[in-house]
Each structure stands twice: as C-alpha cells, then as structure tokens.
Simulated assay, not measured.
Amino acid sequence: MHYQLRSKQTLPISQEKAWKFLTDPKNLSIITPDSMGFHILTGGESPMFPGKIILYTVSPFPGYTTHWLTEITHVQEGEYFVDEQRAGPYALWHHKHFLRAVPQGVVMEDIIDYKLPLGIFGRMVHPFLVKNQLKKIFDYRNNKLITLFGEVENQASFVEFKSF
C-alpha cells in the first residue's frame, strides 16, 4: 500500500526567508521534536543542491534508533526541493517541499509519498502507529514555525493523509 501525507501552512515571512531556513539542513533539528532523537551525522554543512547526501540518526519510536540516508534529487531555487530516502525505515520516502509567495507571506506545502516495509504488518500498524507519529511530527513542525516566524490570521494549517 502507498500512502501520502500533505501538509500546508502559511507564514508571514518572505519566500526568500522561508527558503533560506528550510534548505539549511541544520534547521531540521529545530523543527523536529526532541523525542525523535534527530542528529545529522554528515551533510549538514551546506545548503541543498541536487545530489546532496544527508545521513542522520532518528528514533521514530521509543527504543528504536535507525540511520536515515537522504538524497536531494531536485532543487528549483526558491521554489521547491525534493528529498528521497536512499536507506532507512521506509520502503519508499519521496518528500516534495514547495514554497509559494502570497500576499500574506509564503505558503509552504509538503507532499510525502511513502510505503512501509514488512508487508501486511506494516499496513496493520500504519493507522495507529506510523500515521499518528507523522501527524505529531508535522503538528510540532507547524507550531514551531509559528513560534519562530509568527502566524497568519485566518490561514489554518493542515496535515492530511491518503491511501492508495
């Protein structure tokens, strides 16, 4: 089974400022919950470019720590970038990050296509374990970005999931 997570948030900052923040790998730890045990091992010293490799450790669940190897596969300066898991906990992880200027600031949209390993067991744990964990991570990120950059009135953020 293939899953998709979509997240959208409007921030009262320029597209340029959002791009600079989001494409600095060191800022990933700022917008990731401490409980995830996120640590960049290599690749955190320069901004995004196609072919960039980032290796980090993450603890998605208590008692389970894993390495995650990500490649930045596409970059359109100021507008979007794509990261793909090359090794890690998912059978597939394809994450598109989009930025679009609007009168109130910038709309950030994430679209993540992912598959879980372990066949039927992965499908069984998705609704109550993986999906809930991803929702918590993106809710944390949305709240952290509001703390850092402010909030746009009447612009609700959302996180939604689909299965295919």
Rank of each mutant, 00 (worst) to 15 (best):
M1K: 00
L5K: 02
R6S: 09
S7F: 08
S7E: 11
L11I: 08
Q15M: 09
K17Y: 10
K20R: 15
F21A: 07
F21P: 03
L22I: 14
P25G: 06
P25T: 04
S29W: 03
S29H: 05
I31A: 01
P33I: 04
M36Y: 06
F38C: 06
L41I: 15
T42N: 14
T42D: 10
T42A: 11
G43Y: 05
E45A: 13
S46G: 08
P50H: 14
P50F: 13
P50N: 14
Y56W: 12
Y64N: 06
Y64R: 08
H67F: 13
L69M: 14
L69S: 08
T70R: 04
V75M: 12
Y80Q: 14
V82C: 13
D83F: 11
D83S: 10
E84N: 12
E84I: 13
Q85G: 11
G88W: 09
P89L: 12
Y90A: 04
L92P: 01
W93F: 14
W93A: 07
H95G: 13
K96R: 15
A101F: 03
A101V: 04
P103Y: 01
V106C: 08
V106F: 01
M108I: 15
I111M: 09
P117D: 09
P117E: 10
P117C: 10
P117V: 12
L118W: 14
I120P: 01
F121R: 10
R123M: 05
M124H: 12
M124E: 08
V125S: 07
F128N: 08
L134P: 00
N142D: 11
I146Y: 12
V152F: 00
N154E: 03
Q155K: 04
F158V: 10
F158R: 11
V159M: 06
F161T: 00
F164W: 04
